[in-house]
């Protein structure tokens, strides 16, 4: 236990002059706090994109309803379900990782989380191909008659691409944990990096939870 804690303890927390266990607890609390500050920052990042969408939609409500009808609801809903499931597995991994008993479960959950993330990107890729095939890219040959409908698709491409990049970073972080944990049995248990990565994953989930009703659901009724 002590050797593992020494492995996990980083500067400057190792210089606090505290017993290893409480130094590690403070390091973990610091890491969790740090990632939450970053998440607060990211809230403003994605919030600005959603504000852009809101203002454009307020200015062109009909064109936005017409444009949103063109998105593929099946892919969108499937992807939402995939991410919600991955979020659950991430939460289980994060909780199971406290204490040394459940290393196999944690490893399995991490791998499944990253796998579902990859599945999301794969579905998104198929969807992108279909969108391009239907010329739903702003510019010449755009199928909808109202010019502001192109604004909707500008936001659609921008927001989903930025979300996709965030998700890809998340997949990298989670896969890294899975690989390192698979190689070294002492790496995962109680490691603050697990919670940090999985909190980031949760945030990327939440972003999609809001993008889904904004991009896929308007204009369906009537």
């Amino acid at each position: 236990m002590s050797a593992a804690e020494k492995l996990l303890l980083r500067e400057p927390w190792d210089g606090l002059g505290l017993p290893e266990e409480s130094a590690l607890a403070r390091q973990r609390a610091g890491a969790t706090f740090g990632i939450w500050i970053f998440i607060a920052s990211e809230v403003l990042f994605f919030g600005a994109i959603i504000l852009l969408y809101t203002v454009m939609r307020l200015e062109h409500p009909d064109a936005f309803a017409a444009a949103a009808r063109e998105t593929n609801l099946v892919y969108g809903t499937l992807n939402t379900a995939l991410l919600l499931t991955s979020g659950m597995l991430a939460a289980v991994a994060s909780r199971m990782n406290e204490g040394a008993g459940a290393r196999r479960t944690v490893l399995w959950c991490l791998a499944a989380t990253a796998g579902l993330g990859l599945a999301f990107l794969a579905v998104k890729g198929i969807e992108y191909r279909e969108d391009i095939g239907r010329h739903l890219v702003p510019g010449p040959g755009f199928p909808l008659p109202q010019p502001p409908a192109q604004l909707f698709f500008a936001v659609y491409w921008f927001a989903t691409a930025i979300h996709g990049i965030h998700l890809a970073i998340g997949i990298g972080l989670v896969a890294r944990l899975a690989i390192l944990g698979w190689r070294d049995p002492a790496f995962l248990p109680d490691n603050p990096q697990v919670e940090v990565s999985l909190l980031y994953w949760g945030f990327v989930d939440i972003v999609w939870i809001f993008l889904y009703p904004l991009l896929y659901l308007p204009g369906r009724a009537g």
């Binding site: 979020g87 939460a91 909190l199 989930d205 939440i206 009703p213």
Partner: peptide, 21 residues
């Protein structure tokens, strides 16, 4: 429609933030 959909999304987001995160 939009208000209901965003309300549902906010509930989902709150569940993820509070219970998963």
């Amino acid at each position: 429609t939009s208000a209901v959909n965003l309300g549902l999304a906010a509930t989902q987001a709150a569940l993820v933030a509070v219970l998963f995160m």
